[in-house]
Amino acid sequence: MKRILFAILPLFLLVTSCDKDDQNGTVELHFLATYDGAPLVMLEPYDYTEGISILFQRFNFYLSDVALLKDGKETDVLDIDFVEFDGIDDANKAMAGVALPTWFEVPAGDYDGIRIGLGVPAGLNATQASDYPSTHPLGMVSHYWQDWNSYIFTMINAKIDTNADGLHDDGSVLYHCGSDEVYRSKTVNLPISVREGENSRITFTVDLKDLFKDGNGYLDVVAKPNTHNINDLAVANQVMDNFRDALIAQE
């Protein structure tokens, strides 16, 4: 009898452990960026406001504290990662978008929403790039501003043409948004179904032009070309508010 039990036990453990794995699925986070409805391509000129053409070179941001929501409970997905569109140099790449390389394992089930953070949460923002290996999203020295004691949460770099000569050499737009004050969190009510052993892709879309909204118009990028002063966060706060509001999630 004991022999039979010993023979059955490993089989039982194997089956139950397989069962546990099968109860999980994965979530993939995918991002699309547009500008005024068109695919966002770096070094392509776009109309900004009357008489101003804009050409983007960088659009990137930290994504943090991602959780799936269900009946008021949270399932953690991601602590921190970095999303960049800087290498998108043609429309096909733009339409394909950017997907985080990791698929995050979560319990299978029907969720009713997702929460994401835009930027680096205060706890992590108290660290600095040299605390991390280069492979870590927070290890990028290009995105740590010492004078601010903060990471650059969102970086939008562009050049503008204001004299219609076709050259975007009339000024730069350097919207670097950082510091705890500009961190934003967004909760989206969205049915998200994660099936056992399957991957669910959640796509976030943002129209970059919306990040420049200012009332009924758009920010004056000639008068206010950068957000480099940590003591003057008005534009940075506005850009991050716009970012939070512009972000659309869908499964």
Partner: peptide, 27 residues
């Protein structure tokens, strides 16, 4: 060099590519 906030001096635009501590961003 570091475009220190509220400094009356202009931004020499150095640290964006040559940030401390290595004085390069490896970019």
């Amino acid at each position: 060099f570091f475009d220190v906030a509220d400094s009356p001096l202009p931004d020499a635009q150095c640290f964006h590519c040559h940030n401390a501590p290595l004085f390069t961003t490896n970019g």
